[in-house]
Design a protein around this nucleic acid. Structure first.
Length: 402
DNA sequence: AGTCCACAGGAAGGGCAGGCGA
DNA sequence: TCGCCTGCCCTTCCTGTGGACT
């Protein structure tokens, strides 16, 4: 673009009427004033947590339901509200929110505890300390607090799958050690079957109360989208049926409202960029593709080289056969390592890496036996195959494979 | 009925980065 | 600074196993 072109571009940009009134209403960081179709759950959670305002320790609470059913939103909403009241009335109440999925932040016992301690302003080194030392650090910080501490552990299923339920056991017993403050634990899980495999003691103490979030049905989803859209867009900027399409897309993705809202936002942005006057069906399709790409892109970029190499071999093999096995992956992985000058890890480790990919949700595995030809894991992709070429390309760039 | 494949996945321990007390 | 501690990532070694094949 020459300087003149650029000026014209910006002038046109300013001149163009935006489709959005308030784009932020469609961002994931946006907290709506009300959460439609979740009154029952919200009231339920509020009544369970309410004793905290009277300085009585609320029951530990286990909240479960599929992704995008509003769990986090509702909890944050309730907790925020309580925070404001406690502040106004000077009731000692502290809320700690931790997302356990964050890789290398809160995905091990040590890291979670160090994260918790840091919420009290205690800096814990990334390694070097014994874990019980980190626990003590957290205890002593919590001890200095007064009143009730609400500890929200989001995506707690990820943590438990990775390191077991020992952490929760320790956390649920923390109050026995504390004299000052009392801690209530709110576990939020996307895995609806999580408690089934948990230690019975942990299970009973974590879910003294539990709240289930059901999927949104098509009608509810539509009304959620409509409400957000009316806040975000100017009137008559959305073509007839577009909202329904978003809702249908979300229903396909297991009733995930967050995704549907994001889809609408990206579609709007694309429409605006292409100078359309309305958000149309094509924009939704385009947005769907874009979102899928970005999601995968983000995951890949943050993986270590070794993980990328493993994923690259999976995808390469996937392009040839619909089903791939651990052995094939490892063979190709070794070749790739040789090609790019990476020291190959052992098969044992690669097997674990494959397991981690399953945990992230990129692949699905199933242990099968091929009889005379041994036992192995059958690996299928859980991301759409249409994104494979692009994923492969990104990996090639990341790994500098010519 | 027994064999044997090709892994899964548990246990133990090494190396590394980093913390702590002397 | 040094010796010893830790968590994490990884390797080594190992036992376990479903079912096709003999």
């Amino acid at each position: 673009m020459t300087k003149n072109n650029l000026t014209t571009f910006f002038e046109e940009f300013l001149h163009n009427k935006s489709l959005f009134v308030n784009r932020s209403a469609l961002l994931s960081s946006y907290t709506p004033e009300s959460i439609p179709h979740r009154d029952k759950e919200m009231n339920n959670i509020a009544s369970i947590l309410a004793p905290a305002l009277k300085q009585e320790k609320p029951s530990n609470l286990f909240i479960y339901g599929n992704t995008g059913t509003g769990k986090t939103l509702v909890v944050k909403h309730v907790v925020k509200n309580m925070g404001e009241i406690s502040k106004n009335k000077k009731i000692p109440l502290k809320v700690i929110y931790v997302n356990c999925k964050l890789k290398r932040v809160a995905d091990t016992e040590y890291r979670l505890m160090s994260q918790l301690a840091s919420c009290f302003g205690k800096a814990i080194p990334s390694t070097g300390l014994p874990t019980d030392e980190v626990y003590k650090s957290f205890y002593s910080a919590a001890e200095k607090e007064q009143g009730i501490i609400l500890l929200v552990l989001d995506e707690v299923d990820q943590l438990i799958k990775k390191v077991g339920d020992n952490v929760l056991y320790n956390l649920t017993r923390i109050n026995e050690e504390l004299k000052g403050a009392q801690i209530s634990i709110l576990g939020i899980s996307n895995d609806t079957t999580l408690t089934e495999n948990m230690d019975i003691r942990v299970k009973s103490s974590l879910s003294e109360e539990d709240v289930f979030f059901a999927l949104y049905n098509a009608v509810e989803m539509k009304s959620i989208l409509q409400e957000r859209a009316s806040k975000a867009f100017h009137e008559n900027t959305i073509e007839q049926g577009v909202i329904e399409k978003c809702a249908a897309y979300a229903a396909r993705e297991h009733g995930d409202a967050r995704k549907a809202i994001e889809l609408l936002r990206v579609a709007g942005e694309l429409a605006e960029r292409s100078k359309s006057e309305k958000v149309s069906f094509e924009h939704i399709d385009e947005a769907e593709e874009k979102l899928e790409r970005e999601k995968i892109f983000d995951i890949i970029k943050t993986q270590p080289k070794q993980f990328q190499a493993v994923l690259y071999s999976i995808i390469t093999l996937k392009n040839k056969n619909p089903i791939v096995y651990t052995g094939e992956i490892y063979d190709l992985y070794k070749k790739i390592c040789f090609k790019i000058g990476l020291r190959p890890l052992t098969q044992r480790r690669v097997s674990d890496i494959i397991g981690e990919f399953e945990l992230i949700g990129i692949i699905n595995t199933k242990t099968i036996s091929k009889g005379r030809y041994g036992r192995t894991r059958e690996i299928t992709m859980s991301i759409p195959s249409s994104t494979n070429p692009l994923t492969k390309k990104i990996l090639e760039e990341e790994l500098s494979i010519a």
